[in-house]
Design a protein around this nucleic acid. Structure first.
Ligand SMILES: [Mn+2]
Ligand SMILES: [Mn+2]
Ligand SMILES: [Zn+2]
Ligand SMILES: [Zn+2]
Lengths: 143, 143
DNA sequence: TATGCTTTTGACATTCATTTTCAGTTAGTT
DNA sequence: AACTAACTGAAAATGAATGTCAAAAGCATA
């Protein structure tokens, strides 16, 4: 599964004429080993621990490439930090975001997805992507 | 309707012990005269045209007050600028956002709202608010 | 109307995430 | 090995938003 993701990135890189670099390999390894919804800064710090040379700009640039390659999805919650999650082709989910403990619950709902398509169709709108985030308190934070 | 909104703000201000100022009156007037989803900068420039003295900080501070008072809703799309729309108590809608021309289509869907409540209930999650944004191309931008 | 206290304002500085710049390094090709 | 274009990282720049603080204004009271 990790090898599969590395192959996806290599294929993407090849198709775009990108070079294979030590930095990209390291960042991909570490990204694949993190939990979901990691912030760029969290990832940068984790990378720096084992690879002090790698800079902020490279981490930002490389995560954008992972998004383009379909390996990662950018998540913008309401805390001013861009986060990334592991993406799988053809799969999609949305988020319940706890404002108490910052935990995130993922969910999928086919009916909601279908209704979104209906709404778009009704307006002659072509969907590229969407975000559905439900903010509130998780079971633990409700006390 | 505009008078009604002014009353809502005045009542809110009174309940919070806020003072009535020329700046707040002007900013409310101009906010109420703008189209939906105005960015803070757009609003600031419009205000400055007739009232050169009013500063950025006051516009930011005052819009936050309008949100608290329930007159405005903060919208964070993917362009890094906070926008505000006119809010009406008890009403809610979501957005189709055209990445071609930046236009926004508003929609309401009771079934989606209901399904969100079901999902939250299933996870023991207490909803405070949510955002559903569908990005893509509007009919005009599809050509 | 004057006094006094408190809130509000706005110029300016600051913050903080992200992007840009650019000179030096590196990958991949001939 | 030589060449060339892509890549990197330190540092600077950007830009939205917030903090600071002295001056101004609102409002209660005398
Ligand atoms: Mn997720
Ligand atoms: Mn709207
Ligand atoms: Zn929680
Ligand atoms: Zn459009």
């Amino acid at each position: 599964m990790i090898l599969e993701k590395k192959k996806i990135f290599n294929d993407f890189a090849a198709s775009k004429g990108l070079r294979s670099t030590r930095q990209r390999d390291i960042i991909l390894d570490i990204f694949l080993s993190t939990r979901q919804h990691v912030s760029v800064e969290e990832l940068y710090l984790k990378i720096k621990a084992s690879n002090p040379g790698i800079g902020h700009a490279t981490v930002y640039r490389t995560l954008k490439l992972f998004s383009e390659a379909g390996l990662a999805r950018e998540i913008l919650l309401h805390d001013g930090q861009t986060r990334y999650e592991h993406a799988v082709a053809g799969e999609h989910h949305d988020h319940l975001v706890c404002t108490g403990c910052n935990s995130i619950i993922e969910f999928e709902d086919e009916t909601i997805e279908k209704l979104q398509k209906d709404i778009a169709a009704r307006h002659g709108f072509l969907i590229k992507n969407h975000k559905l985030e439900i903010y509130g308190l998780c079971a633990a934070c409700r006390q």
